[in-house]
Design a protein around this nucleic acid. Sequence first.
DNA 1: AGCATAACCGGACTTAGGTCCGATTGTCGA
DNA 2: TCGACAATCGGACCTAAGTCCGGTTATGCT
Lengths: 200, 200
Amino acid sequence: MNDELLRVLRRPPRERADAARNRTRVLEAASRLFAEGGVAALTVDAVAQAAGVGKGTVFRRFDDKSGLVSALLDQRERELQEAVVFGRPPLGPGAPARERALAFFDAYLAYLADHLDLVRLSETAAPGARFRIGAYVFWHRHLAILCADRPDPDHLAHVLLGMVAADLNAELLSQGIDWGRIRAGVAAAVDALVAPVHAP
Amino acid sequence: MNDELLRVLRRPPRERADAARNRTRVLEAASRLFAEGGVAALTVDAVAQAAGVGKGTVFRRFDDKSGLVSALLDQRERELQEAVVFGRPPLGPGAPARERALAFFDAYLAYLADHLDLVRLSETAAPGARFRIGAYVFWHRHLAILCADRPDPDHLAHVLLGMVAADLNAELLSQGIDWGRIRAGVAAAVDALVAPVHAP
DNA sequence: AGCATAACCGGACTTAGGTCCGATTGTCGA
DNA sequence: TCGACAATCGGACCTAAGTCCGGTTATGCT
C-alpha cells in the first residue's frame, strides 16, 4: 500500500513517445485528407489508414470524430482566445463590454467564414457536441462576464453564441444570406442584447 | 403521346390503399415504441419490424428518420400553427407584433418542454435537418413578418428561432437552467430584439 | 541491464442510418 | 372482368461511427 501511495504522489508519467508520434501522424493525415478532398474525405477509417494507425488509436486519442476535428481547429481558435485575453482593445481587455462583445463576434465570424465546414463537422458530429468543446465553454464564460449586469448572463451568453452556430450559418449562406448581412444582423442583435438595462 | 398528355392532365392518382395503411401502421408502431422505451427504442429497424413492414417502406414514406419523427410531432405542431393563424390575440392576429412574438415563444417553449426528446431527435437526426422541417419554415415566416420593420427580418427571425433549438435547451436543462429561467431569458431577448427601432 | 507493469496498439466486431433492385400488388382504362 | 402499367414492397447490402480485447511495447524501478 506504500506503493500505491507513492504512485498517487508521483506526477502522472508523461505521454509515451509512440503515443505522441501517433497523435501528430493522425493530425497530419487528417489535415492532408481534408485539404485534398474536403469534409467528405475526412472519415475516421481513412484518417487512420492514411496515418498508418489502427482505428482504435484515433478514438483513444480524440474520443470521437468531433474531438479529432476540434484538434485540427485548435491552433486557430487558440490565437483568437489569446487575443481576447491578452490582446489590445476592443477585442482584449480595456474596452466597454458592448464593444468587446461586438469585436468578439466580428472576429469569430471571420474565423467561422474561413473554416465553416470543419467547425460544422466538429459541432454536429454528435448531438450536443458543440457545447462540450472546450472553446465553447471558454466563449460562454467570456460573454457571460461581459453581460454581468443583465438579469441572466448565463442564459444570455448561450443565446448569443447560438447566433454563430455553424449549422445555422451554413443554412443562411445556402439561402443566399451572405456574410455581410450576417455580420450586420449579428452586430445589431449584440447591440440590442448586451446594452445595459435601460432606465425608463 | 396522346396518352402522355392525358396522364399529365389527370390529377395525380390518390395514394394506394396499401401505402396509406402502411403509413398509419408505421406511425402507430413508432408511437408505441417511443412510449415504451423512449428515444433509444426508436430505431428505424425496430419501427419497421414492429410495423410488420420493410425498412425501405419507412424511408420511402418519410425520407429519413428526421421525417418520421416530424410526422409523429405533426399533430401537436399543427394545433400551434392554427392557433397562430386563426386563434385569438395575443397569439393570433390582432395584437401588436412584439406581444404576438412573446406569446408565440411562450407557447412554443411549452410545446418544447412537453416533447423535448422527440423534437431534438427530429432536429439533429441529420445535419441541417432542423431548417428543412416544414414547421421551421412556417415559424420563420411568421416571425419575419412580425419583424418587418427591422433592418433584416429574415436574419433576425433565424436568430430568434435559434433560441428555441432543442439541442440548446437540452443543454441548458442539463446545466441546471430550468424552464422558468429559459422562459424569462427568451422573453427578455425577444423584448429587446423585436422592439421597433428606437429613435435616438 | 533486466523485469514487472501499465499504457498503447490495431483490427475485427457491432450498431444504425440510408440505398437499391427484383418481386409483388393495387389501380385505371377498356 | 381482365390486362398493362406503375407505384409499392421488403430485405439484402453499403457506409461510417464507435467498441472491445488479446497481443505488444515503452517506462520506471531495482
